[in-house]
């Protein structure tokens, strides 16, 4: 099958507190697939993800340079261009973190939060999109009767699916996942893996993972990051 590229990274360098982390890395990430990034810990895998939505700009002491082009619809957009507003970008490139990070609020408010930020006010539309995203994340049946409960009363796996749903509610074209199952037990992790495999028809997934098994089960492409260099790798 012919694959289309979604993200093209060139000459990407990254430093944290003047210490180089990435050194002129390059990669092409295919659309509608799960791309896994593997490699030893502490080598900047999470950092690489944060360059794709410019989240690194929120971290004092971080500095990045180079080119990252993302194809939105038909147009290639250079995301590091000063014309790109980070919030605009981040609404289109969703991100899920290692540990679930629900806000200290109800399930419903967590889900509606990105819409509130985006200025969606219509209550009916909000309700519909909350339901749709929760269904997408296999969470709807479990939480539909307790939407007003504090999100932190959910189990770890449910919280992580809530965070995925929360990222999906803006219908991003790309979803970045930073070791999304590492804080969960095997069973909860398996549910998330099924969910991710399901999602790739709608969106491009880039995932950092520590687990060879997991990569073998769900990834379509693998990159290895070591000593500041990113290169394609075989399935582990």
């Amino acid at each position: 099958m012919e694959t289309e590229d979604k993200i093209i990274i060139k000459e990407l360098s990254f430093a944290y507190r003047r210490r180089p982390v990435l050194d002129r890395v390059a990669a092409a990430i295919p659309a509608s697939m799960i791309t896994a990034i593997v490699g030893p810990s502490g080598q900047g895998k999470s950092t690489l993800l944060m360059t794709l939505n410019r989240l690194w700009e929120e971290i004092p002491g971080a500095q990045a340079s180079g080119s990252i082009k993302i194809r939105f619809n038909r147009d290639w957009i250079e995301i590091n261009s000063p014309k790109v507003d980070p919030p605009w970008l981040r609404a289109r490139v969703g991100m899920v973190f290692q540990a679930p990070n629900p806000l200290p609020a109800s399930i419903y408010k967590n889900m509606a939060f990105p819409l509130k930020i985006a200025g969606v006010k219509n209550r009916k539309e909000v309700d519909e999109r909350v339901e749709k995203a929760l269904r997408q994340a296999f969470l709807w049946t479990e939480v539909k009767d307790r939407l007003t409960d504090d999100a932190r009363t959910l189990s770890g796996g449910q919280q992580q699916r809530l965070c995925i749903a929360r990222a999906l509610i803006l219908e991003p074209e790309i979803l970045l996942l930073d070791e999304p199952t590492s804080s969960l037990d095997a069973e909860a992790g398996a549910v998330i893996e099924d969910l991710l495999s399901e999602l790739k028809s709608d969106c491009t997934l880039v995932m950092v993972s520590h687990y060879q098994e997991q990569v073998r089960r769900i990834a379509d492409r693998v990159f290895r990051l070591e000593n500041g260099i990113l290169k394609p790798a075989d399935m582990p």
Binding site: N53, L55, E58, I59, P86, P87, W88, R90, A91, G94, M95, F97, A99, N101, L103, P104, F113, P114, K116, I117, A118, R166, A167, L170
Partner: peptide
């Protein structure tokens, strides 16, 4: 940091992050 980054990752501007997440926290 996990809390600090959660709203920007969802498209919040710095000001939105301050008033909707950081100050309440």
């Amino acid at each position: 940091r996990t809390v600090r980054l959660s709203a920007p990752a969802l498209g919040a501007s710095r000001l939105q992050n301050i008033f909707l997440v950081l100050l309440p926290r």
